[in-house]
Amino acid sequence: HMTFVALYDYVASGETDLSFKKGERLQIVNNTEGDWWLAHSLTTGRTGYIPSNYVAPSD
């Protein structure tokens, strides 16, 4: 899985979304859904959809 880092805080707007904090590391499970990607937080262990423009590839 690709690892990304959150650029901003995001508060989930629905049950399927994943809240995260700036700097949180996320594994992308599925990024074929356009602007919303299914991600797994390496910080909280939770999985949900995130806005793709809130994250950047982590080196």
Rank of each mutant, 00 (worst) to 15 (best):
T3G: 07
I28Y: 02
A12N: 05
G48W: 01
D59S: 12
Y10A: 01
D35A: 11
G23K: 02
W37P: 02
S52G: 07
S19E: 06
T47D: 07
N30R: 07
A12H: 04
A6S: 06
T44A: 04
P57A: 11
M2K: 12
P51A: 02
N31E: 11
R25Y: 15
E24R: 00
L42M: 10
Y10E: 00
Y49K: 07
L42G: 04
A39H: 00
Q27F: 15
G14R: 15
I50E: 00
T47E: 07
T44L: 04
E15Q: 11
W36Y: 09
D9Q: 03
T3F: 14
P51H: 05
D17R: 10
D59N: 13
D17M: 12
G14Q: 11
S13F: 10
K21H: 11
S52C: 10
V29I: 15
V29F: 11
Q27Y: 14
P57N: 07
L26D: 00
L26Q: 00
T47V: 11
D17Y: 13
T43R: 10
R46S: 07
K22T: 07
L7M: 09
P51N: 05
W36A: 04
G48T: 01
W36F: 08
F4I: 05
E15T: 13
F20S: 00
V11N: 12
S58M: 15
V5E: 07
K22M: 08
T47N: 08
A39S: 03
I50G: 00
L38G: 01
G14M: 09
S58I: 15
K21Q: 12
W37L: 08
G45K: 06
Y8N: 06
L18Q: 03
V11R: 06
E33V: 11
S19P: 06
G23T: 02
T43N: 09
T43I: 12
S13P: 07
L42F: 08
H1W: 11
N31Q: 14
W37Q: 03
S58D: 14
P51E: 01
E24F: 01
P51C: 06
T44Y: 02
Y10D: 00
L26P: 00
V55R: 01
V29S: 06
Q27W: 14
V29T: 07
Y54I: 06
V55K: 01
T47I: 11
R25C: 12
E33T: 13
S13I: 14
T3M: 13
D59F: 13
D59V: 12
F4T: 05
K21E: 08
I28M: 06
D9K: 01
S41Q: 05
R46D: 08
H40I: 15
G34Y: 08
L7I: 11
G34A: 13
S58Y: 14
S58H: 14
L42T: 07
N30L: 10
A56C: 09
P51D: 04
I28L: 07
P57I: 10
Y54L: 13
G23A: 04
F4W: 13
D59Y: 09
I50P: 00
G23C: 06
G14C: 15
V5N: 03
T3S: 08
T3L: 14
N31F: 15
D59L: 13
G23V: 00
Y54V: 06
K22F: 04
F20C: 05
V11L: 07
S19Q: 05
F4R: 05
D35P: 11
W36D: 03
T3A: 08
R46W: 07
A6V: 10
V11H: 11
T44M: 03
Q27M: 15
I50V: 11
Y49N: 05
D9I: 01
T32H: 10
E24C: 03
T47Y: 09
D9R: 01
V29Y: 11
G45T: 03
T43G: 06
Y8S: 07
A56T: 13
D59W: 14
D35T: 11
G45L: 07
S41F: 01
A39F: 02
D17H: 13
A39V: 12
W36C: 07
G45Q: 07
E24S: 02
T44C: 03
F20G: 00
M2I: 12
D17K: 11
S58W: 14
K22A: 12
G45S: 06
V55G: 04
A6G: 06
S41A: 03
Y54C: 07
E33Q: 14
R46V: 06
G34D: 12
E33P: 09
G34K: 15
T32P: 09
T44V: 02
H1E: 13
S41V: 02
W36S: 05
V29E: 06
A6W: 00
N53T: 12
H1C: 14
L7D: 03
L7H: 03
H1V: 11
S52K: 14
G23Y: 04
R25L: 15
S52D: 02
G48S: 01
H40K: 15
G23M: 03
A56Y: 11
S19K: 03
A56P: 04
D35H: 13
W37E: 01
S52M: 09
P51S: 03
Q27K: 14
G48I: 01
I28D: 00
D9E: 07
V5M: 07
D17T: 07
P57S: 09
T16K: 13
F20R: 00
A6F: 01
D9H: 03
G14L: 10
F20I: 09
N53E: 10
E15N: 11
L18A: 05
L42I: 09
Y8K: 08
N31I: 14
Y8V: 07
L18C: 04
T43F: 07
E15S: 12
L18T: 04
K21I: 10
Q27R: 15
Y10C: 04
D9S: 06
V5P: 02
E15V: 11
G45V: 01
L42C: 12
D59C: 13
N53F: 09
G48C: 01
P51V: 01
P57F: 09
N31H: 12
T32L: 12
S41N: 10
I28N: 04
N30V: 10
G48R: 02
T16L: 15
S52N: 07
S58R: 07
H40V: 15
Y49M: 11
V29Q: 07
Y8D: 07
K22E: 06
T32W: 09
S52T: 06
E15A: 15
W37I: 08
R25D: 05
E33W: 10
T43Y: 08
G23W: 05
V29G: 05
W37C: 04
